[in-house]
Design a protein around this nucleic acid. Structure first.
Lengths: 338, 338
DNA sequence: CTGAAAGCGCTTACAG
DNA sequence: CTGAAAGCGCTTACAG
C-alpha cells in the first residue's frame, strides 16, 4: 500500500499537522524542532512517501496542471509547440494534459469541459472552429484560457499568433521580385482569421506590384480529406491558368502534399516555379531547396503562451477582477533565396 | 462561481445524496421519482453544473487519466503514437497526461513520480535508459505500467515492441539480394535491447549470405547531439570503406539526417546506394523513392498499449494479485522496392 | 422514495 | 514546540 501522512504520523506518534508542515517545507517557519523534522523526513523516505496530490488539489483548489488542446498532436508544427509548452510549463512546476481535437468542434467542446472538470488550472487552445459557447462559459467564469495560432477576433481573451499578413506579404513580394507574374495561393480553412490574413497578405503584395488578383489562382482546399481536395484544386489551376509560375502555400502541410502531387505528375517543381510557404519542415532542405519560407517561431510561441497563462493563473486573487488580456503577434523568420 | 452538488441540493431542497445519484445515472436504480430526476437535471443544466472530478477521484481512488512519457514529443514516430494513444484512451473514457523525458533518465524518474503523485491510474512509457529504480517501486506497488518501443528484458512487466531482429534481417537480406556487398549499418543507443536486436538482424542477414561482418561498417552514433556525431560516423565509413554500397538505418531520424549529409556532400545517394530503414516519414517518397522500409505499426502499437494498460487498471481487485503480463511483438509492414 | 453521516488524504486557521 | 478539528466536493453504505 501507498503510505499517507497519517501512516507517518502514527509511526512517529506525531500529528498529521506536524508531518504535513515538515514535508511541505514549513518546518522552520512553524518552529518544528530540527530533530523532529529529521525524524519525519527519514520516515517519509523509508516509507517511500509520495504526497497524494489529488487530496492536496481538492484542498487548495489548484492542480498545477494545464490543458493543451491541439487540432492534431501528430502534425509537426503542433507537436513542436507541444514540446515547448511542456518544457516551459515543467520549468514552472506544471504538468500537461493533452488532447487532440482532430479539427472536430464537438470534440473540442467536450475536451474543454473535461479538462475543466478534471481541475486543470488553465487551458491552452489552438481552436478549430467557432466552438465559442464553451469558451464563453469559461471566460465568464474568469477561467484562465489562451489561444495560439488561431484566435477569436470578437472575444476578449489572450492569444499568441504570428504576423500572418506581414509574412505573407513579404513572401509573395519576393516571388514577384523574382519575376513571377502568375502566383497561385494554396490555402485552407478560410473561416479562420489566421488564414484570412495570409490571403490578404498575398493580395496586398500583388496589388502593390500592380498585378490584378485572379480568382482562378486562389486555391481553397477544404480541410477534411485535404489530400484529395488538393489534387482537384491543383488540377483546376493548371487547367485554367497553365502559365502559373509561382506557388504560395499558407501551410507546410499543403506544401508537402503538393510536392507529392507534383512528383506523381512528373512536374519538376523546383525548376518550373518559384515557391513560398508559411512554416517549413526540415525535409524541405532536400525536397525544395529553393523554397522561400516564413518560419514560425515555435519556441517563442510556446514560451509566451505558457508564461501568459501561468501569470494569469498565479495572479488570481491578487489583481481581483482586473485581468490583463494579451494579444501577442510574433514575427516569423524569413528565409528568402538569393 | 462554479456550481457544486450542494448548490443544486440547496436550491431544490434535496440532499446531496439524491442529487449525486441522479446526476451519476443511478436515479432509476435508487428509485428516485421521475419528477425529482427531471428537476435535478434541469437545475444542473441551468447552473451549468460540471462535477468536480478531483473530489470524485479522491473518493473513488481513480482519476480516469493515464500518463504517457516519451523520449521526445516532437519526433514524428512518438507524436504519431501519442495521437493513437490519445484516441484509444479517449474512446474508453480516459484522458492523457503527457511528458517528454528528452532522453534524460533523471527527468524520466521524476516524471514517473509526478504522474503517480498526481494520481494517474496507469503509465505508458517509452523508456530512455536504465531508469529502473522508480519503475521497480511502481511494480512492487502493482501500479499499472507498460512500456513500448523499448523494454527491460530483466523486469517482469508488459511491453509492446516490434519484431526488430526479423524486420532488420529481411531489409538487409533484400539489400544483399539486390547486389550489395558492403552494407553499412547506422545505429544509435546501443544500450537499448530494441536497438541491439536491429543490429543482430543486420548481422544475421550478412552471415546467412556468407558475408563477413565488417566492424568498420557499423556506425554507432551517440545520441546526444546526433546530428554532429552522424557526420563523423559517415565521414569515417567513407574513409575506411569507400566501396560501401548500401546503408541500413535503424531509425528514420538517422536516415533523414544522413540524407541532409549526403546532399551537402553532393552525393547522389539514391543512385549510388541501396537504402533501407526501420520506419519512415511521408517525405521519403520524394527524398528517397527507392528506399526499402519496415514500417512500424503505429496504430497497432497505440491500440495494444492502451488496451493492455486499461484492462490491467480495470481488472484490479477482480484478479487479486494475479496480474497478466503481456509481451506483444508486432510485425512491421515491409515496403521493398522492385 | 429520500437523507444524515462518514470518509477519501490532504492543508490550515485556531488554540495552547 | 505541537495537536485537534474543520473543510475541499464528491460517493456510498446505512437507516428509515
Amino acid at each position: 500500500m501507498r503510505a499517507s501522512l497519517k501512516d507517518i504520523a502514527e509511526t512517529l506518534n506525531l500529528s498529521k499537522t506536524t508531518v504535513s508542515w515538515v514535508l511541505t517545507g514549513k518546518g522552520d517557519a512553524k518552529n518544528i524542532s530540527k530533530s523532529t523534522q529529521e525524524l519525519v523526513r527519514k520516515c517519509a523516505e523509508e516509507m517511500n512517501y509520495q504526497p497524494n496530490l489529488i487530496a492536496r488539489s481538492l484542498n487548495i483548489g489548484k492542480t498545477k496542471t494545464v490543458g493543451l488542446i491541439l487540432p492534431s498532436i501528430s502534425d509537426f508544427f503542433y507537436s513542436s509547440v507541444a514540446r515547448e509548452v511542456e518544457e516551459n510549463a515543467s520549468k514552472r512546476g506544471y504538468s500537461l494534459m493533452i488532447a487532440s481535437s482532430e479539427s472536430d468542434a464537438d470534440k473540442e467542446e467536450s475536451m474543454l469541459r473535461m479538462f475543466r472538470s478534471k481541475g486543470v488550472d488553465g487551458i491552452i487552445l489552438a481552436p478549430t472552429k467557432q466552438s465559442k459557447t464553451e469558451i464563453q462559459h469559461l471566460l465568464k467564469e474568469r477561467f484562465p484560457l489562451i489561444t495560439f495560432d488561431r484566435y477569436f477576433p470578437e472575444l476578449e481573451m489572450s492569444y499568441v499568433i504570428i504576423d500572418n499578413k506581414e509574412s505573407s506579404f513579404k513572401l509573395v513580394g519576393h516571388l514577384i521580385r523574382k519575376g513571377c507574374k502568375k502566383i497561385a495561393i494554396i490555402t485552407t480553412n478560410p473561416h479562420l482569421a489566421t488564414m484570412n490574413a495570409r490571403v490578404e497578405g498575398y493580395k496586398a503584395a500583388l496589388e502593390k506590384a500592380g498585378i490584378k488578383v485572379n480568382p482562378q489562382l486562389i486555391g481553397n482546399v477544404s480541410y477534411d480529406n485535404y489530400e484529395k481536395n488538393l489534387v482537384k484544386v491543383l488540377d483546376t489551376i493548371f487547367e485554367k491558368v497553365p502559365e502559373v509560375d509561382g506557388f504560395f502555400f499558407t501551410t507546410h502541410i499543403l506544401a508537402l502534399e503538393a510536392f507529392l502531387y507534383f512528383n506523381k505528375k512528373g512536374i519538376n517543381f523546383n525548376k518550373d516555379f518559384e515557391l513560398a510557404c508559411i512554416h517549413s519542415v526540415s525535409t524541405f532542405e532536400i525536397m525544395a531547396p529553393n523554397i522561400n519560407v516564413a518560419e514560425m517561431p515555435v519556441g517563442d510561441i510556446g514560451k509566451n503562451v505558457v508564461n501568459i497563462l501561468l501569470d494569469d493563473i498565479e495572479s488570481k486573487g491578487k489583481t481581483k477582477g482586473v485581468k490583463g488580456k494579451y494579444s501577442i503577434v510574433l514575427p516569423c523568420t524569413l528565409f528568402l533565396n538569393q
